[in-house]
Amino acid sequence: MGRGVVRAAMPPAVTVRLFATAREAVGRATLSWELPPEGASVAELVRALGDAHPPLARILRVSRLVRNGHYVEELSERLRPRDELAVHPPYGGG
């Protein structure tokens, strides 16, 4: 993603939900990211998140992503305003 393509700001935006180590790395459970008029891919948003929150970058590399309730299969998927993207670090139930 080019610099400034995805910016933290006002709606219409993508809501990012953070769990476990991802939440702890950022210090918040949710983030809101404004999309540029031309839109952005999941990969671009992930890169922007890592740039904005360096402790989150290495967690993102091993996390699964869930977009609107479905696991992301291709990072090239285009995001839409009001999408919700959840960051799932490696699971540890049981």
Binding site: F19, A20, T21, V66, H88, P89, Y91, G92, G93, G94
Partner: peptide
Amino acid sequence: VKRTVPIW
């Protein structure tokens, strides 16, 4: 459960 369920 340990591998695939989003629990931490």
